[in-house]
Simulated scan of single mutants.
Amino acid sequence: MTDPDRTAAFFDETFATAPLMAILRGMGVERSLALATTAWDLGIDSVEVPLQTDEDEGALREVCRLAVERDRIVCAGTIIDPAQVPVAVAAGARYLVSPGLDPAVVAAAREHGIPILPGVATPSEVQQAVAFGLRWLKAFPATWLGTGWFRHIRGPFPQARFVATGGLDASNVAEFLDAGVRVAAVGSALEDEAQLPRLAEVLAARRG
């Protein structure tokens, strides 16, 4: 099996059980642990901790440690420099997420044997990612792209699978999933007690 095939198979399995993932950006260790637990208890299996500061590295490491105990998956987000890849791997991240498509970052991820979900926002970027052998992609910023983008992009790129991030919460995740998004990412919505029941409904209705 080639590296692109392994990466696709990894994401197929990772995202098979739930149509939502959580992003815990700049929340510190304790808050990240608390919200990761909220996400897992809700039924969101995959949690992203963006890696931008030394504190984020500590949060990523601790959330990864707790994830092992809970048999859950944690990824490192905002990977924009190849140098971040070994840091994320050492912290225990199971996969990487980038806001954009950088061949050097993709190459570094492959060198370290860790799957990567690069960001795209245009047909040209999707085409380039597909040429790299990538099938699972992050569409960012999702609310700026709009649901129509996903309906149109499926025509020329039926093999692409999208994780939508940016501005999503309980009020609009179902709309994006209906448009063909495979996974929708939420962040601060997990701190809003009023949104948790609706997120639970989405999970229950669409769980694979």
Rank of each mutant, 00 (worst) to 15 (best):
T38I: 00
D45F: 02
V173N: 05
A93L: 13
M21C: 07
A59R: 08
R65C: 02
V173E: 12
P86E: 14
E201G: 06
G26Q: 01
A107P: 01
L203V: 09
V202N: 10
P123W: 08
A194G: 00
R198I: 01
S32W: 03
V47D: 06
Q159E: 12
A18P: 00
L66E: 06
D41F: 01
A174I: 00
P82V: 12
V105L: 15
R182P: 03
H152T: 12
L20H: 09
A189I: 02
D71S: 13
A205G: 04
S98T: 13
A194N: 05
E55W: 11
A109F: 14
D45E: 10
E201P: 00
V74M: 07
P197Y: 06
S46C: 06
R154S: 11
G26T: 03
S124D: 10
V105A: 14
P197R: 07
T143Y: 10
D3G: 02
R110A: 13
P156W: 05
Q52I: 07
F11T: 04
E175L: 07
N172M: 12
E30H: 05
A164W: 08
I80V: 15
G92E: 03
E57V: 11
F176Y: 15
G43N: 08
K138F: 09
I79E: 12
A160L: 07
A18F: 01
P99A: 03
L134P: 13
D169R: 05
A184N: 14
Y95A: 15
W144E: 14
L24P: 03
P141A: 05
V202F: 11
A39H: 01
A139S: 06
A39N: 04
G167R: 09
P123F: 09
L35A: 09
T7D: 06
G146M: 05
D178V: 02
T17F: 04
Q195T: 00
V49K: 08
E125W: 15
R31A: 08
P99M: 05
C75A: 13
A91G: 11
A83N: 08
Q127K: 08
F132E: 00
R135N: 03
G208F: 04
R110N: 04
A108G: 06
L203H: 04
G166W: 11
V63N: 00
A164Q: 08
A91R: 14
V68W: 09
D178Y: 13
A129L: 13
A189Q: 02
R70T: 10
L145R: 00
R161M: 02
I114F: 10
F15E: 01
P82R: 15
P156M: 08
